[in-house]
């Protein structure tokens, strides 16, 4: 079976990994590393820390592979792990003084983009909006930030988000709408 075939589901890959196939684990890493980095980055706005936490998330998958039960989607499980790690790191960061990206000058931002080389080629970056979005997201509570990132940035459906945060779909929709209203007020009003 060709592991690189995109028709193989995440659930099949984790099942193969549970049976001892390490190549399946590598395929999971290839599929999820960028998604995890982008997801975590919107919490802590630090590229190297986001990579570090993405590695920790995949390490937890490696360590606890038998904890995954196929009754739930694999994406739900991995985003739950990543979300918990990101929230924990964010709480730790809040107790320490850090420099948010919005305080970094435009030239420094260009240098960061160039040196890290992390931005996908061809992406049109609205720097002003990104800085404003970072400040606005920082003002949201962790719960609201989590759902709006999962919905707007990761593009997950409401059903998946409700499983990740263990809340009913109605609660998820309500939180996302309230987060949208708050972001609109902060960014446009």
């Amino acid at each position: 079976m060709n592991i690189n075939n995109n028709q193989i589901t995440d659930e099949d890959l984790i099942l193969q990994f549970q049976n001892g196939d390490e190549i399946a684990f590598n395929a999971i890493c290839e599929r999820y590393r960028d998604k995890l980095i982008n997801f975590i980055f919107r919490f802590i706005y630090d590229v190297s820390e986001a990579e570090d936490l993405a590695q920790d998330t995949l390490l937890k998958v490696y360590q606890n592979k038998h904890s995954y039960k196929s009754i739930a989607k694999f994406s739900t499980w991995i985003y739950t792990i990543a979300g918990n790690l990101a929230k924990t790191r964010l709480r730790q960061k809040k107790t320490r003084k850090t420099t948010p990206m919005s305080h970094i000058g435009k030239d420094d931002f260009d240098i960061i983009q160039t040196i890290s080389g992390n931005i996908e080629e061809g992406t049109k970056v609205d720097e002003e909006f990104e800085n404003a979005l970072e400040n606005a997201l920082d003002k949201l509570s962790l719960d609201f930030r989590l759902v709006i990132i999962l919905r707007q940035v990761q593009g997950l459906p409401y059903e998946d988000i409700s499983k990740i945060i263990s809340m009913p779909i109605g609660t998820v929709k309500s939180r996302i709408n309230r987060a949208r209203k708050k972001l609109k007020e902060l960014l446009y009003d």
Binding site: I37, E51, L59, I119, V125, F129, Q152, V153, K184, Y188
Partner: peptide, 30 residues
Amino acid sequence: KKYQDLNEKMNCISYLKASDGFMAGLNQKI
């Protein structure tokens, strides 16, 4: 219009890629 603009911009925010050393770092941790 503001909500639509917010939606469109959030769909276009920068998409980060993992660095070249990501998998090597992960393998070290494993």
